[in-house]
Structure formats: structure tokens, C-alpha cells
């Protein structure tokens, strides 16, 4: 379970990299298309980068974070559940910020900043997983479910 926890936490971090790359590609590709004579109106649904950002952000990463939370209940090390809950909270905030930003684009800046918080906390969570495979008796009482 500890290994699963570590892998899932790193996958969440990887997801943030993918999201940053996808959205940067999406807008550079858009600018390139505009230079090529394309016209954007509200019919426009974006390109592959936007689609990828939407799918990874609303489906892939949420599934990873929920899996992380489930695994955290069984991973016996201090702070496992707490970190998973913090990541979940930041993810919910991230989705709410995205939702609000459609109507108030300046909120989008916080969406970008909060992504870095998800990245930082998920890497920290992965690194907190004890490397040893045996659990000491002393740490066992801290495993209580949060």
C-alpha cells in the first residue's frame, strides 16, 4: 500500500506537468492558427490541447486523487490520510477556480498558482512515505484513520 501511495502521489504530480504542458500547447497552437487566418468565436471549442486539459483535469487527476485517498486509509504511516485530504481539497479548489474563471477570467491566475500547490504537496506526500517495508510498533498508533 505504501508503494501504491507513493506511485499515486507521483502520478498526481505528473498530472500537473501534463496539464501545464497541455494548456501551454493549446494556446500557442491557437495563436499559430490565428496567424494562419483562423477566426475564433464562441462556436470555437479549442484544440487538442484544450481537450486534453479538460479530460485530464476533470477525469484523470480526480480519479488518481480519489484512489490516493482510498489507498491512504490502508497505508500505515503518519500523515498518509492528512496529505491525501489536503491534495483532494486543493483539487476541489482547483476545479472551482476553473469554473469561476470562465465568468471571471482574473480568477484563472489563481488556478495557475494553485496548480503549483498541488504539485508541491503531492511530491511532499510521495516523499513522506517511509522507505522501509516494515512498520515499527511505535508508528502504529498514528495510523488511525483521520
Amino acid at each position: 500500500m505504501k508503494t501504491a501511495y507513493r506511485v499515486l502521489a507521483y502520478l498526481v504530480a505528473t498530472g500537473v506537468f501534463v496539464q501545464a504542458g497541455a494548456i501551454a500547447y493549446a494556446w500557442f497552437a491557437t495563436l499559430n492558427d490565428l496567424d494562419g487566418g483562423a477566426v475564433i468565436d464562441s462556436d470555437w471549442e479549442g484544440n487538442l490541447g484544450h481537450a486534453m486539459h479538460g479530460i485530464v483535469g476533470t477525469m484523470v487527476i480526480p480519479l488518481l486523487v480519489i484512489a490516493l485517498l482510498i489507498v491512504s486509509f490502508f497505508a500505515k504511516f503518519p500523515g498518509a490520510v492528512r496529505y491525501a485530504l489536503i491534495i483532494l481539497g486543493l483539487l476541489v479548489l482547483q476545479i472551482v477556480l476553473a469554473f469561476v474563471a470562465f465568468g471571471a477570467p482574473v480568477v484563472g491566475a489563481l488556478h495557475g498558482a494553485n496548480a503549483l500547490a498541488i504539485l508541491g504537496v503531492s511530491i511532499t506526500a510521495a516523499q513522506r512515505v517511509p522507505r522501509s517495508t516494515t512498520t515499527t510498533d511505535a508508528s502504529a498508533p498514528a495510523n488511525a484513520v483521520a
Binding site: I70, F73, F74, K76, A144, V145
Partner: peptide, 17 residues
């Protein structure tokens, strides 16, 4: 008990979803 608690917590997360 801890295992049962973890299973219950998992169900509490997954059930509503």
C-alpha cells in the same frame, strides 16, 4: 479494527461518488 475503519472510510468516499 483499523482495517474495518479503512474499509468503512473507503465506502464513505466511494459510495456517494
Amino acid at each position: 479494527r483499523r482495517v474495518v475503519a479503512a474499509v468503512v472510510a473507503s465506502l464513505l468516499v466511494l459510495g456517494p461518488l
